[in-house]
């Protein structure tokens, strides 16, 4: 490579990233840009085009749409909290244990990665649904007041936690690699308890991983479709099913596009956070 001039190298570099960039621009950025612009345009009967925020005004003044948006935010926040509450202890356990049980736990936690969402949804209907396996098992041990979360707001939360566990756990276990055994032992030597170790050593080292977990999960949870569609209530619904329904069943593609832009803007806050995290890491 040394004999090649800088310009040739630059050209080769451009050639290398050119095709994927071209595909992205042609198939993703351009059509997305066109539809974003169209949500801001109003075509009059005579064909003249004017700029207008009417669709966004409609969205935020329509109590039904706002209720769907709020439900999406609620589902995302609750699912995210549950995901971290479940996966962080598992990640810590996996980091400090080298037993066969740890391998089993890890395999079980990663298993959902290989199961498609629609299968999970139907399996969960049978398991947590009314007269399902869970209810039967609970009745065997004498618990008779089970109320199924199927078709309630908790249905999608349970399904989404299951679905997003592997990714969360992978990121958190990777983050735990920064926590060294020596640091923990040193802290123990000076008398630190579990709470202090978690609060003063593990948590500060994990902040970055937790932010990545938050960014990636929010983006994926906010736009999720199959699980809220299958397990959730008819109303309020999450943005994913609402957008599709507005597009194909209510046949208002322009309003569906406005809903998509609102969803996209909400998610892009977390997308930017993720990109900032990545670039900051490279600077170090």
């Amino acid at each position: 490579m040394g004999s090649e001039g800088t310009s040739t190298r630059n050209l080769k570099g451009l050639l290398l990233i050119g095709p994927p960039l071209a595909v992205m621009v042609c198939l993703l950025l351009y059509p997305a840009g066109v539809s974003i612009v169209q949500t801001l345009q109003e075509t009059a009967a005579d064909g003249s085009v004017s700029w207008s925020l009417a669709r966004y005004h409609r969205f935020f003044t329509d109590p039904y749409s706002v209720a769907n948006y709020v439900r999406t935010v609620w589902t995302t926040v609750v699912t995210l909290i549950l995901l971290i509450a479940i996966c962080l202890p598992i990640a810590i356990y996996l980091h400090f244990t080298r037993s066969r049980l740890a391998a089993v736990v890890q395999a079980l936690a990663l298993f959902p990665m290989f199961v498609p969402g629609i299968i999970v949804a139907y399996a969960l209907i049978r398991y947590i649904g009314p007269n399902g396996l869970l209810q039967s098992l609970l009745e065997v041990v004498g618990f008779n007041s089970y109320s199924s979360p199927y078709l309630t707001p908790w249905g999608p939360v349970i399904g989404l936690v299951w679905d997003h566990m592997p990714l969360t756990l992978l990121i958190l276990t990777a983050g735990m690699a920064k926590v060294s055994q020596e640091a923990i032992e040193a802290a123990r030597d000076v008398g630190a308890g579990y709470v202090v170790i978690f609060h003063r050593i593990i948590l500060p080292l994990m902040v970055e991983s937790l932010l990545v977990v938050m960014a990636l999960n929010v983006i994926s949870l906010f736009g999720s479709f199959v699980i809220p569609y299958m397990l959730g209530p008819a109303s309020p619904e999450m943005m994913g099913p609402y957008m599709l329904r507005t597009f194909s069943e209510v046949r208002q593609p322009d309003f569906a596009a406005a809903q998509a832009v609102i969803t996209f803007l909400t998610c892009s806050v977390f997308g930017i956070l993720y990109v900032v995290m990545l670039t900051r890491k490279q600077d170090v």
Binding site: Y64, A67, T152, P233, A234, S235, E237, R245, E249, V250
Partner: peptide
């Protein structure tokens, strides 16, 4: 489809 979701479905008083 639109009318049912706006008028019938939200009548659920739960949680």
């Amino acid at each position: 489809n639109d009318g049912w979701y706006r008028n019938v479905a939200p009548a659920i008083a739960r949680n």
